[in-house]
Nucleic acid binder design. Structure first.
Lengths: 253, 253
DNA sequence: GTTGACTCTGACGTTACGTCATACCTTATC
DNA sequence: GATAAGGTATGACGTAACGTCAGAGTCAAC
């Protein structure tokens, strides 16, 4: 087991970075001793390597967390993607080197370069495309799950009336939860409503097991589109929901 | 002449970025029309390419500005350095690709990787060394100037008494300037003291021509070490000085 | 004149830490 | 046991380089 300094030195990151990663739940220590010292083991070190790979691919920390926390996360598949992106990055650097040489020629020759030609090699779109592709694959993986299939089967024959009823019930639950935002997420009333919310999903879409519910909660805060939408109810509602759902799932065992 | 959208599209940056660069004096438009529209020409486009190269080398914007604004800036030399750094970056990517392959092997073989081995390829120190080397060269270029030589000649025979006198006079000027920080930097009294400050340098170190004085002012705010030191007089003093000196030099013509 | 795209300035927000303060912990040495 | 140096924790403010958005003016085509 390593302490923070050892891991930080080994990995070439700062202690502050490790604190930060712990704080956001990206990389929690394997253990914490009686004095509060973080202790990291092999699994944590391996995860940190994964994180550094994803960072090298310009993924944001919330997105990295989402990917790594996905039960369907496939390390081999991820590494394959890293490989591809690294090759594209390398190709870009080669284009930049070429551009430097060209620019040197024009400087030495006292000529001018076409304005448009100057910037082509800096182009990142191919690399960004690949990132988006990977993200899309991760998101589309949801489409392969039993939950999704069940949801599809259930909702296939819903009438407009059904949808209206479902929307209204959902809105009611959210409205009541928002009213209780001043309370602690572990509050009994809050937890009861979270239970209702979960039941609502199970009744109308798919069986909302603990792990799925928890993953949904993480998505609420990790995916800016969800956060933005949910926070329309009230500022910070997504964060409140996440905490409440996590507490609820903790108690499920 | 191009407007912001054209340049932004051409260069793959945002309009906001161009605004920002103008604001910090990194890339000013060649012209501004009657309606306040920024207009960029060939020289500005070429400078933007330089900026993007330096950004690719992970230089900060203030540092880029300092380098590009240096009268001794040598484009050819800079490009040579870029070339070297790009090669080192490429080599690093190759090491990362190798690491991915190794990691794939261990994952497939169900074995573990040595903890320390995981992070070596992420190492940036060689690249950072080269950046520091370039920065050091830029700073040491000051040592080649006539101003520096003159300063050396002048100060060579200074006694402790001389140094004490010079320090006291310098402190007096600064003390008075700090008192006037509430005024506009173009204020007459402020400008008189700026004149004194310049005279002090000319009398005791080297002939402080307009361009040199202006360059000095830029260094006060672009080099964090200067800023930190100067702002010990009062918070924001470096920025105040810069503005006052620029105004003074503007009036010199 | 209208519309849609473009321009400006100003200002707040974001991400991933860096920096620093304060207090506790550990280890080696005297 | 005391001390010193190095290590650990939490908390909080600050940073760089924009991104986002608001409100208002401009331009070109219909």
């Amino acid at each position: 087991m390593y302490k923070v300094k050892e891991v930080a030195t080994m990995a070439g990151v700062s202690v502050r970075t490790l604190h930060h990663y712990d704080h956001i739940g990206l990389l929690s220590p394997g253990n914490v001793n009686e004095k509060g010292y973080r202790l990291y083991g092999e699994r944590e070190v391996a995860r940190l390597q994964q994180i550094l790979f994803f960072k090298e691919m310009d993924f944001s920390l919330p997105k990295i967390k989402q990917i790594l926390d996905d039960p369907e996360f496939d390390e081999e598949e991820a590494l394959q993607h890293h490989r591809e992106i690294l090759w594209k990055k390398k190709a870009r650097l080669e284009r930049l080197i070429q551009s430097v040489d060209q620019t040197l020629e024009t400087v030495r020759g006292g000529t001018l370069m076409e304005d448009e030609k100057r910037f082509k090699p800096f182009d990142m779109s191919e690399i960004e495309e690949h990132q988006k592709k990977y993200e899309k694959e991760v998101e589309e993986r949801w489409g392969d799950t039993e939950a999704y299939k069940e949801s599809k089967r259930k909702t296939n024959n819903y009438t407009d009336e059904d949808w209206k009823r479902i929307q209204e019930e959902s809105n009611r639950i959210d409205r009541e939860l928002v009213k209780l935002m001043g309370r602690d997420p572990s509050d009994e009333e809050v937890q009861r409503l979270i239970g209702e919310k979960r039941q609502h999903i199970t009744d109308n879409f798919y069986e909302c097991k603990g792990e799925i519910f928890r993953g949904l909660a993480d998505m609420y805060v990790n995916d800016p589109r969800f956060t933005k939408n949910i926070d329309k109810w009230n500022e910070g509602y997504a964060e409140f929901l996440k905490k409440a759902i996590h507490t609820y799932c903790d108690r499920l065992g």
